[in-house]
């Protein structure tokens, strides 16, 4: 009897740790979901305020027009006061809108943080690194492709003195031409992202390799791990289409990567990824119902 006691204790401990682990990851996802809802409400609130501010702006503009036509001085004074009041109200609404928008962004960041913890908790075998993906340090200091590319803006052509060439060729349509790629300062590089329809949460990381570890190698075909769950933390089993491109350039990846294996429920191996140049890349994983979009800057 006594000999069995340690086993029973151990059994209970294991049980409880499993429960703790299970509930912990669900707890993280619940928290994440809560903050995401808060973020959505705040974002909707912000949009409402901005819309109201916009309609006030239109009304003010209309009053300005009327005022310009009017010659009656008392009417003019009243109208000035009215415009002033509406303008004040508009500024207030804009301020409130901006404030709500910033709150919404903060709430979303909090939700992502919780989802991150949820992923690390539940898929600890696969999710080891929740930091933004970065380029492996390398001796290759060069970029491997002209990074100053493409738009289809005819003004750009005129700017470069190419319009005459086009006219000579009898070819007046838009021509894809070069534009420098500007990476926005506030670009969200998180390895955990909420899907477009807000139905899914995904995480990406580089599948570890003996040469480049868990960083991204330049000009090498390599693999990623993609983990996907719904907002409650249930793994998602679906077919994912992989699409990559560089914003501001008209070109995509030099290879055609795809999901080659499901490593665990909701965890996918993506093989065949290759980046041939530095800069801002967008990687999208699309299912029929939703799409996950990650930014990577190399």
């Amino acid at each position: 009897m006594q000999a069995r006691l340690p086993f029973a204790v151990a059994f209970i401990l294991i049980q409880s740790s499993i429960v703790a682990c299970f509930s912990s990851h669900h707890h993280h996802f619940m928290e994440g979901q809560k903050w995401l809802e808060t973020s959505t409400e705040q974002s909707n609130g912000a949009r409402q305020k901005i819309l109201e501010a916009n309609s006030l702006r239109k009304s003010i503009a209309l009053k300005h027009k009327k005022r310009a036509r009017s010659k009656n001085t008392t009417q003019l004074a009243a109208s000035s006061l009215n415009i002033e009041q509406e303008a004040e109200q508009m500024r207030l609404l804009q301020k409130e809108g901006a404030f709500l928008r910033s709150l919404s962004i903060e709430s979303k960041a909090k939700s992502v943080k919780h989802f991150q913890n949820g992923f690390s908790d539940h898929w600890s075998q696969w999710v080891k690194k929740v930091n933004p993906l970065k380029l492996a340090s390398t001796d290759e200091t060069f970029v491997s492709h002209n990074p100053k590319h493409f738009s289809a803006d005819p003004r750009a052509l005129a700017l470069h003195g190419l319009m005459s060439t086009l006219e000579r060729e009898g070819n007046r349509e838009l021509v894809a031409i070069l534009q420098s790629q500007e990476t926005p300062d506030d670009l969200d590089l998180s390895s955990v992202k909420i899907s477009r329809q807000r139905k899914l949460v995904g995480h990406i990381e580089v599948f570890p390799h003996k040469r480049w570890g868990s960083d991204i190698p330049l000009n090498q075909i390599h693999s990623w791990v993609l983990a996907v769950a719904d907002l409650s933390g249930e793994p998602i089993n679906d077919t994912f289409n992989v699409v990559g491109h560089m914003p501001g350039h008209v070109h995509g990846l030099p290879t055609q990567p795809r999901v080659t294996k499901q490593l665990a429920p909701g965890v996918y191996l993506i093989e065949g990824i290759k980046f041939q140049m530095r800069g801002w890349w967008v990687m999208q994983f699309e299912t029929e119902r939703d799409s996950l979009r990650f930014n990577v800057v190399l």
């Binding site: 002209n146 100053k148 590319h149 493409f150 470069h160 003195g161 190419l162 349509e173 838009l174 021509v175 894809a176 031409i177 070069l178 008209v250 070109h251």
Partner: peptide, 9 residues
Amino acid sequence: NRPHFDILP
């Protein structure tokens, strides 16, 4: 499709 143009003057 319209060909790309990969260089700048």
